[in-house]
Amino acid sequence: MKMPMSDARMDLCREELMQAFPWPTIMLDQEGFVVAVSRPLPGVTISPVQGRQHLGDLLPAYWAAVGEAGPGPCERFRDVARAVDGRWLHERLWMSALRDGMLLFVEDRSEQMTTSQAELQRDRLASLGFMVAGVCHEISNPLTAVQSMMQMLLGRADVSAEALQKGLRIVSENVRRVMDISRRMVDFSRVGDEPRVPFEIDASIIEAIVLLRQGLSGKAVSVEHFPELGALVLGNSGQLQEVIYNILINAAHAVGEAGRIFVTTAQTGDRRVLVRISDTGPGIPEEVLPRIFEPFFTTRPSGQGTGLGLAIAYEFVREHGGELRAYNNPNGGATFEIDLPAHSARTQHERQSEQA
C-alpha cells in the first residue's frame, strides 16, 4: 500500500514542476493570493515566504486579465502591457485552472511586438512614399503665394499700412497651411510604442464629440450618440479618437449651421464592432466617393483643410484590422462606417451580471 505523499515532498514536486516550464509561472490559490512563483518577473518582487501577497496588489494588470478570462476552458490567454524601467513590456498571460486555484504562465512577447512596430513603421513610410507627389504639390501652392506676396511688398516703396497688413495676413495663412501639412505628415510617419490595450470604443467617441463641440462654438449642429455597453476593441484609443473626430468634423462642415449628426455603436454577430456616423447634409457627390480617402483630396475651399484627415483615418483603421467605408443614405446625407474586430474580453458589467 502506497503511503500518502508528505507536504514537504508535494512542495518539492510542485517546485520542480514549475521550474520545468519555459516561462515564469505563478501559482494562485482560489482567492488570488500567490502560492508559488518559479522565477523573478521584471519590475516586481514576489516572495510568498514573506507573507500573503495578492496578485491584484502586485500586478493589477495580471489580476484584471484573470478576471476577464472568467470560468471555463475557452480563450485562456490575455495580452498584457505594463511599464517597467521606462519601457513597455508586452506579455501574454496563459491561464490554467487548478482544483484549488490557478496557474499563470507569463510569455514575454516584447520582441515580437518590436518586430510588429518595425513592420508598421515600414508600412507607414511606404504610404508616405505614395503621398510625396501630393505633398510637393500642396506645399508649392502656398509657398508660391508667399513668394508672390513678398515680391510685391518688397518691390513697392509706397505700400500703405492697410496693404501691408493684408499682405502679411496672406503670408501668415499660407505659412500656417504649410506647417499644418508638415505636422500631419510627421505625426503620421511616427509610430509610437504605446501598447494596444482593450478599451470601450464609446469612450473615444465621447471624447471626440467633446472636442467637436468645443470647436463649433456658435453653430447649432446637433450630435446624438447611441452607445452600446461593452463594445470593446483592442488598439490605440488616441488614434481611433482622431479617426472619429476627423469624420465628425467633416460631417459638421457638410450639415452647415443647424444640421444633425448621429453616432451609433453596435456589436455584430461576426465578432465585429461597428461605429456608424451619419449626417443630414447634402451627401457626397457620386464622382467624389471613389476618391474620398485619397491623400490631399478635398472638396472644401482652398486653404480650408489639408485633405489629409480622412486619408490618415483610413490608414489608422486599416492598421487596427478594420475597414473604413463611406456611402450616401437613401433619404439624404452621408454615412461613414468604422468596422473593427471586437475584443474577446468580457466587461466588468458582464462579470457582475454572471455573479448576481
Rank of each mutant, 00 (worst) to 15 (best):
K2L: 13
D7G: 09
M10N: 12
E16H: 13
Q30T: 13
F33L: 05
V35H: 08
P42T: 02
I46V: 05
Q50D: 12
G56D: 12
A69V: 10
R78H: 05
A83S: 13
L89E: 02
E91Q: 11
R99T: 11
V106M: 04
E119S: 07
L120T: 14
R124K: 15
L125M: 14
S127L: 14
G129C: 00
G134D: 05
Q151C: 12
R156F: 05
Q165L: 14
G167K: 01
R169S: 14
V171S: 07
R176H: 15
I181T: 04
M185E: 07
G192Y: 00
R196M: 11
V197I: 15
D202S: 12
E207T: 08
A220S: 13
V221H: 00
E228G: 08
A231I: 04
L232Y: 03
G235C: 08
E242L: 10
V243T: 04
N250P: 06
A251M: 00
A252G: 01
H253L: 14
E257Q: 11
R260Q: 14
T264P: 10
T264Y: 05
T265W: 01
L274Q: 08
I277E: 00
G281D: 02
G283W: 02
R291I: 02
E294R: 15
P295I: 05
F296Y: 15
F296E: 09
T298Y: 02
S302C: 09
S302D: 12
Q304M: 11
G309T: 07
A313P: 00
Y314G: 01
R318L: 07
G321K: 12
G321W: 06
G322Q: 05
A326T: 01
T335R: 06
E337I: 05
I338Y: 03
T347E: 08
H349D: 13
E350G: 08
